[in-house]
């Protein structure tokens, strides 16, 4: 397994370096402006000066070897656009993104799985509840997250004014206590977190429903029913215990998808996470920052996937699910 991880990391490092540089464009070339905006145009001499300052005038191979040796030493370089150390920038923002993604993952997996189990239980009776949930969740999982985000922002933020329109904290806030700070964080994260949760709850619902429907046909469930077990105990003990492995694996596998989903959500809510930074880095052709972010994201996904693998194996050993 470790060989695979190292191999993947090498591929990531190589792609990280070359992919951004294949894109047309130069980080210092500003000719066009967006409507309502302004940009400073750099002279040719300035562009040459900055290229030399950031080592972009050197041969590609030399740049690549410098990049590899620096990365191995833990130095991700200085952002070309922001003029700040990339590791520092990512560290400052990653915490906000992880806060969003992990909370959203928790909420969507919890509610999605619970609803899936309930739906599955009623599926065999062709109930309205199952039909309704199935339709709702299928539709929800097809709506792009930024649309959900905009709808929530306009209704709960602008119309009802229950939640702030932007940011991760109240601007310039000083907190009297840790609880105040926590409350402010939750208040600001609520809508972006809800957006991400709603956009992925359908996945967990469908997976959980499908697994549970399959478990519900097992003979031991029939036995449990015959014994007169209460419905709630049957669903949350016997069915859940046997349908949980794919759900757990999905939680870790979903992490990567949600990190990328966070890009749009962070932009909609001006949330200072890594996704918003990645968008800026790509649009500005900030190679060093792009490399750093992609490296971090790739490592995170590798960690989560490895964790998923390990959990899978562990559960298999313990015989959680015979079909594993």
């Amino acid at each position: 397994m470790w060989q695979k991880i190292v191999g993947t990391l090498i591929v990531v490092l190589v792609l990280n370096f070359f992919l951004p540089r294949i894109m047309p464009g130069d980080p210092f070339n500003f000719i066009s402006v967006e409507e309502g905006s302004v940009t400073v145009t750099l002279t040719e001499d300035q562009i040459a000066h900055y290229h030399a300052y950031y080592g972009m005038d050197k041969p590609m191979l030399e740049q690549f070897t410098t990049y590899i040796s620096r990365t191995l030493r833990g130095d991700l370089g200085i952002s070309i656009y922001y003029n700040r150390p990339v590791s520092e920038m990512i560290g400052e923002r990653l915490i906000w993104t992880l806060l969003l993604v992990i909370s959203a993952l928790g909420i969507s997996s919890l509610f999605g799985s619970a609803l899936g189990l309930i739906s599955a239980y009623h599926a065999r009776e062709s109930s309205i509840l199952d039909d309704l949930l199935l339709r709702m969740m299928t539709i929800l999982s097809e709506i792009p997250d930024f649309i959900i985000g905009l709808a929530l922002l306009i209704y709960f933020g602008a119309h009802l004014k229950w939640f702030p329109l932007a940011g991760a904290t109240t601007a310039f806030a000083v907190y009297d206590s840790a609880f105040d700070a926590f409350r402010d964080y939750v208040h600001h994260a609520a809508l972006p977190c809800l957006t991400l949760s709603l956009s992925s709850i359908g996945d967990f619902y469908l997976l959980s429903r499908q697994s549970a429907v399959s478990v519900l046909t097992e003979p031991y469930i029939l036995t449990a029913r015959a014994k007169g077990l209460r419905k709630r105990r049957l669903i949350f003990h016997h069915v859940l215990a046997n349908a949980i492995s794919p759900i757990l694996a999905r939680i870790f596998m979903k992490m990567g998808g949600m990190l990328s989903g966070a890009v749009l959500v962070e932009v909609v809510f001006a949330y200072p996470g890594i996704g918003k930074l990645m968008r800026e880095a790509v649009s500005m052709r900030d190679y060093v920052l792009i490399q750093g972010i992609f490296f971090y994201v790739a490592v995170l996904i590798l960690i989560f996937n490895t964790a998923a693998d390990m959990i899978f194996k562990k559960m298999k050993q313990r015989g959680f699910h015979e079909k594993l």
């Binding site: 922002l153 306009i154 933020g157 602008a158 932007a166 601007a171 310039f172 001006a270």
Partner: peptide
């Protein structure tokens, strides 16, 4: 003060 906004019109 300059502060982040999600949508300038709403803000």
């Amino acid at each position: 003060e300059w502060l982040p906004v999600s949508d300038s019109i709403l803000a």
